[in-house]
């Protein structure tokens, strides 16, 4: 079954890059959110198989988003991929503590993200 994914990043180019990387390799439909708020708006409406998010975003940061997702009924178990540069070790550790599944440092290649997303979807698919 086609998996639904959510990409949260305030950069259009980054969203387009992730989308382009996955297209044709992972059977998925992708929703995009350009801010934490947009993500909050989309999350209660759809069952996402994977959420991909940046940390450094205006207003609502990626960490807050992870906490929100983990506390929600619908997505408490959804795999979360953090895409960010290696700027802050502290933020990276916090993200993993809060329940992010994978930290994928920028820059990553298309096969990198395909591998991670595909393996996460497979894991979840096996469970349900």
């Amino acid at each position: 079954m086609t998996a639904r994914l959510l990409i949260v990043d305030d950069s259009r180019a980054m969203r387009a890059y992730v989308r382009g990387s996955l297209r044709g390799f992972v059977d998925c439909e992708i929703d995009e959110a350009s801010s934490g708020f947009e993500a909050l708006r989309l999350l209660p409406r759809t069952d996402y198989k994977v959420v991909i998010t940046d940390i450094n975003m205006p207003d609502i940061n990626g960490l807050e988003l992870i906490k929100f997702i983990r506390a929600s009924e619908r997505h408490r178990d959804v795999p979360i991929i953090i895409i960010s540069t290696h700027s802050s070790k502290q933020d990276q550790e916090k993200a993993l503590e809060l329940g992010a599944s994978v930290f994928l440092p920028k820059p990553f290649t298309p096969p990198d993200i395909v591998d991670v997303v595909a393996s996460l979807i497979k894991e979840k698919g096996g469970e349900s």
Partner: peptide
């Protein structure tokens, strides 16, 4: 930060 992430990507 964003520019760095993008340009390296």
């Amino acid at each position: 930060h964003t520019l760095k992430g993008l340009s390296s990507t």
